[in-house]
Write a protein that binds this DNA or RNA. Structure first.
Lengths: 243, 243
DNA sequence: AAGGGCTACTGAACGGTGTTAGGTAGTGAA
DNA sequence: TTCACTACCTAACACCGTTCAGTAGCCCTT
């Protein structure tokens, strides 16, 4: 299941017999880069301390000089992906759009970024790798206070979610979407977006009509979000926003 | 990460020196039961051939007499969970309900069953364990086994999804929900339901207000699903359907 | 009741994994 | 040039899934 008979994955050149010594931060980024690359190629199962080490040109034990354990490396990879996710969400939602359309664009960005990096998405949102949270700020998030404790810095994941929360808060206040607890609505939106990505990623065998599914899905969600007196509005305006 | 220093997990009684020989089907169910139990307790990471074997009272190698590999065991566990999922979806949706309300009840059943068995849900919908799809109902067939043709039998997962498809098809036809490709709509519904469960399962640290989130989420989805001329109907009727 | 064949089961091994302990050697500072 | 610091290596540990030759429990026949 996990251990397939892979090729020995040998370190490329022991050419220079002299062993090199790098500055910690340089080696650290090397390791993360190697992990990210391996990860993107074959998922968690091909990311081993040995494969990373071979890729970097050191032995597996040396990694522990730079990371506490494998989880810490995974966490770094996850943080990097959250950065891309934030970018994807912000990129499409230019300010000139109608606020609801901006939300739509943001969801598209989320979904498309997720689909573009399935392995990383799976890692971040579809495993419970304990390390993903262990290395982050320890304190539990209470509702309505995403980042209130200044002494710890939030993970990028929390930042990303904070952006969504803020957007929803504004939309609710302005009356552009239904009344209700912005917190809950934000959670529902995230859940909806996540659902599409997760489904498309894991069940590749269904040959989904991806583009249409995304379209319909967002459409249903946004329509459901509208206040009663605006019903139907978004469903019409949405068409123009196709890639 | 995976290998924690666990206690040796030794086989309970070597008491009776005489080793026992069980009928294959009996041993098979024993193994599946042990796997399910271990799985529910600690997830995939505590389900090893050795731990299963120890639990059953045989050696790990003996398992291969009954299952081709670990994936086959996992598949059996997954199938069992799909059974529970189907039950959960059917149980609440009694016939006297309005069709849309029946869909609501079905979604609640899906979500609640998923949340009640997080490890199994994660296994089935949130990993890409290759064994889950690689082989259909794959039992070892030595000689004339009792197993029906594995080629034709759909997995329970496919059956479960088929139920949803059928429901949506009816709803679209009757005009109870928006026009559109029933296939896509069914996918969107599944994605939405899955999103809630997945989110609640993996991100326990957020202390969600679970019940409210589910309520709002389903509400938004169903409202989005309604045909334009029925807008607002579900949002009102939905209140009565609380547990 | 005795024997034989089938096969469920054992014990040992192999190559993979994450992790640790202790020794070695590169490198910047004195 | 010397020295301290520490990045790095070698070797080992306990776990994992899987394989294989051999053993022995049980049913069927005689």
């Amino acid at each position: 299941m996990l251990q397939k008979p892979t090729t020995p994955a040998k370190r490329p050149p022991a050419a220079s017999i002299k062993r090199k010594r790098l500055a910690p931060e340089e080696r650290r980024t090397q390791i993360i880069e190697a992990a990210r690359m391996l990860f993107g190629e074959g998922g968690l199962s091909v990311v081993s301390m040995r494969s990373i080490a071979a890729h970097v040109g050191i032995t597996q034990a040396a990694i522990y000089q730079h990371f506490e354990d494998k989880d810490a490396i995974i966490f770094a990879v996850a943080e990097h992906f959250f950065g891309k996710l934030i970018e994807g969400m912000e990129a499409n939602s230019t300010v000139d759009l109608d606020p609801v359309e901006a939300l739509r664009a943001s969801m598209r960005g989320y979904i498309e970024t997720g689909l573009a990096h399935p392995e990383e998405y799976r890692l971040v949102f579809m495993t419970d790798a304990p390390g993903l949270r262990r290395h982050g700020p320890k304190t539990l998030q209470k509702r309505d206070s995403v980042v209130t404790d200044p002494e710890i810095h939030p993970t990028k994941g929390q930042i990303a979610y904070g952006h969504l929360q803020e957007k929803v808060r504004v939309l609710v206040k302005s009356g552009d979407i239904r009344k209700g607890d912005p917190e809950l609505i934000a959670e529902a939106i995230w859940a909806a977006g996540h659902g599409v990505v997760a489904l498309l990623i894991t069940h590749v065998e269904f040959l989904w009509e991806v583009e249409k599914l995304i379209e319909v899905h967002i459409d249903i969600l946004l329509k459901g979000l509208l206040p009663d007196d605006h019903a139907g509005r978004v469903a019409k305006k949405g068409k123009k926003n196709r890639a």
